[in-house]
Design a protein around this nucleic acid. Structure first.
Length: 553
RNA sequence: GGCCUAUUGGAGAAGAGGCUUAACUCACAUGCCUUUCACGCAUGCAUUCAUGGGUUCGAAUCCCGUAUAGGUCACCA
């Protein structure tokens, strides 16, 4: 007659440490009142997902604002799905968005007293906990094969009962210890399952920081806690890690809500106090009229790298994410324009329970605002940094003459309300290329929006005259006067009003003159203020451009 | 299919029984400004809070049913 203790020793003969040893090794953290310990625990299975960034931003904020600890942990228990190097990538990407943990898995190294912070390096710790559960009869080995499990499921489907490994369907749940011992000694492969005491007809109460008080169905599944590869499943690793790393708030996506009862029962079985939970809404997307979760495979917005590639400012992106996180953030930012997100006080109470649709329009708004506030020099620096990483063509353009590029960025910056024409760096090349050769020449060879009513000879004469007489050392007002004079010499009224009053007397108005000069200068009807463009180009270039323009007429 | 969660305008949302003839932000529309565009300014944009019932003198706010959407039911996290 064997007992559970014998069974536990048979399964984990090398495990000599006890739970008490671990409690001593990872003591309660000494933190001020109200300080929280949060974490971001990604799996190394790919790039940084927008939803993950969102979750990590919230976790970090909650810890930092209360003087607590934010740490990272690598959840690499699924060796099959692991993508080599993605753990380091994740940490690097996080850093780009200002999410820098003070403790934990940091890519190339680990830091802190509660480690290791890589789950695959914590196998011994999990074993101590599992051994304990076996000893107290709350865990047992299960020898089911994949086929047996499938068969159980099929039977349950036919019977129309809740599927899964529980109660009377749990084939190995009620063996005697002797039987377990015999099976193990026979060499049959097995996993360890939790012995649940729950009942799915009963409820369990739970509190969630964003959802409030919940009444959930109890767990009754004898879930696998220890896989045949010697590593725990997520559920068990979460339990052990968040307990011994002394996490006080678990932030995670709402897809975890259904497993909350399981986790709660696990904590209870271990005799541990469960942390507080915050199940965050997921970011959605409208796809053909239906709302769905951002998909890693289908949606470019799902990857944080996508926004970086497009050259969205990190701060703007964070502002956007914070409007989703806390509904009062926008109003706060408007009321406190000089303060940053770091000064904002986040609260779970102001978080919405259902997933927001990803709104690129709103991101664009924040981004435009942000870029417009930069000075020309800052802008050049910012764009250059972007170009050096993502856009060689743009980088070449800047490097050709950085001072010149800064002048282009400086257009109308001296006005009280600066232009907001760039929403991301990826837009910039297209918007400024007319200021450069060979782009200008190429543009002028294309379709040009010249007036269809004006006589081409008159236009040519006007443009030539304009180039020959243009004065650059004038104020904008004065310069506009000379433009009017030029128009007057060729039969254009000095203002739209005058033209409208006596249309038979003129060919058009100064507006028409400005338009043709604009096209000659930029190839387009829409451009920044020509006065500024002229001053950057210089007299010789203006004359040259007028000649090129005349040739297209 | 079972279970869970959600449902206020195009989007994010405020709203906790009377102060809401539903705040604010983005988007959109119109007008003004103006040498174009952008900026800025002004105005407009939900008689209605998924829906049906109920409670109440009074409901977006409380209760019940229905619908819809999302999530979840692995030796994945």
């Amino acid at each position: 007659m064997y007992d559970n203790k014998y069974l536990a020793n048979l399964i984990f003969p090398d495990v000599t440490e006890t739970l008490d040893d671990l409690e001593k090794r990872y003591p309660e953290r000494n933190l001020p009142e109200g300080a929280e310990v949060t974490r971001f625990a990604p799996s190394p299975t790919g790039f940084l997902h927008t939803g993950s960034l969102f979750t990590s931003l919230v976790a970090q904020k909650v810890a930092v604002q209360g003087g607590g600890v934010f740490y990272t942990r690598l959840e690499d228990t699924d060796t099959k799905r692991e993508i080599a190097g993605s753990g380091e990538d994740l940490i690097r990407q996080l850093a780009v968005f200002g999410v820098v943990p003070s403790e934990g898995y940091l890519g190339d190294h680990q830091e802190g007293n509660y480690g290791p912070y890589i789950q695959s390096e914590r196998a011994d710790i999990y074993k101590v906990a599992i051994k304990h559960l076996i000893e107290i009869g709350r865990a047992y080995p299960c020898f089911c094969t994949k086929e047996e499990l499938d068969e159980i499921r099929n039977r349950q489907e036919k019977m129309k009962v809740v599927p899964g490994y529980y109660g009377r369907f749990a084939k190995y749940r009620n063996l005697t210890v002797d039987e377990y011992v015999e099976l193990i000694n026979s060499g049959k492969p097995y996993v360890i399952r939790f012995r649940s005491l729950g009942d799915h007809n009963l409820k369990v109460e739970a509190d969630d920081l964003v959802r409030g008080h919940l009444l959930l169905t109890q767990n009754d599944q004898d879930i696998v806690i220890y896989k045949s590869d010697g590593l725990p499943t997520y559920h068990f690793a979460h339990l052990v890690d968040d307990h011994f790393m002394r996490t006080t708030i678990v932030t995670r996506g709402e897809e975890w809500l259904p497993s909350l009862p399981t986790h709660l029962e696990l904590f209870e079985a271990m005799g541990w106090k469960a942390p507080k939970y915050a199940h965050l809404p997921v970011i959605m997307k409208m796809d053909n009229g239906i709302r769905r979760k951002l998909s890693k495979r289908k949606d470019t917005e799902a990857s944080c790298a996508y926004f970086l590639q497009d050259g969205y400012p990190v701060y703007a992106f964070k502002q956007y994410l914070f409007t989703i996180a806390n509904s009062n953030f926008e109003e706060w930012q408007i009321a406190n324009p000089t303060l940053t997100i770091d000064d904002f006080h986040f609260s779970f109470d102001n978080m919405s329970r259902d997933g927001a649709l990803f709104d690129i329009g709103k991101l664009n708004f924040f981004s435009k605002e942000f870029l417009a506030k930069k000075t020309a020099v800052e802008m050049t620096e910012f764009v250059k940094d972007y170009a050096s990483k993502y856009n060689q063509e743009l980088l070449d353009l800047i490097n050709k003459d950085e001072t010149y590029f800064t002048k282009v960025m400086d257009i109308e910056k001296d006005k009280p309300n600066p232009r907001k024409d760039y929403e991301k760096c990826a837009d910039i090349l297209d918007k400024v290329k007319f200021m450069y050769e060979p782009y200008y020449s190429t543009l002028m060879k294309g379709e040009l929006p010249w007036s269809t009513t004006l006589d081409h000879e008159v236009m040519k004469a006007t443009l030539k005259d304009f180039g020959d007489t243009v004065e650059l050392n004038l104020t904008e007002q004065e310069w506009f006067e000379t433009l009017k004079q030029c128009g007057l010499r060729h039969g254009f009224a000095a203002s739209k009003k005058e033209y409208k009053a006596e249309p038979e007397k003129y060919l058009g108005s100064v507006n028409d003159v400005a338009e043709m000069v604009r096209i000659a200068l930029t190839s387009s009807k829409n451009s920044p203020n020509i006065y500024y463009v002229l001053r950057i180009l210089g007299k010789d270039e203006i004359v040259r451009r007028m000649n090129i323009a005349c040739e297209t007429l």
